[in-house]
Amino acid sequence: MKQLAFIFDADRCIGCRACRAACSLAHGDPPGVSRIKTYTMGPVGTFPCLSMYFLTVVCQQCADPACAAACPTGACFKSEADGVVRIDASRCVGCGACAGACPYGAIDVCGSRAFKCDLCAGDSPACVSVCPGEALRVADVSEADEHARTLRDDGGVGPSGRFILRGAEWIDELPAEFEKKLREGRYDE
């Protein structure tokens, strides 16, 4: 079965956040909404032997999406044809249930609607074409390197996004949670 998702090469990401700016501009999203987020995974280690990499996270196009399960109106659904999780704006009431359910923080709610990656409706995604590191691409997950990882999956949602990392040791934490813990000095190495 076809499953489109982002394949992200962390060795190539330079942490510049151009992807986020391009996404906001392409969609005309309000401030504070971001369908794509870059997390700083580190630094960890003992100075000066440190390690740090970036993870750019969008909707993971899960096999069993928690957002769709939580959606009270049926606006959020997984498409059979390409495996992409979509939100039908006409049915969305902006209740935020999907955002609360998503383990990856990939949905933002603003006003009366939810915002998530729509793969730029099939066009070449704005984030992909702008990326200075050429770290992002959208493909069928079967095309991903066999060593590519997925994000940590505690809830058994089956994230489809793939992550390539050779230059550092993978930190198997949810990126948003990790970043917050590290910033607050609560991350135990």
């Binding site: 510049c16 956040r17 151009a18 700016a21 391009a22 501009l25 392409a26 074409s129 702008v130 200075p132």
Partner: peptide
Amino acid sequence: VALRGDPVDPMSKGKLCDKGLSGI
């Protein structure tokens, strides 16, 4: 209404950054 990188540019090769994208 829209900005995108110019792929023929020999230094940026069609890429832009946050600063450039704020032009509009």
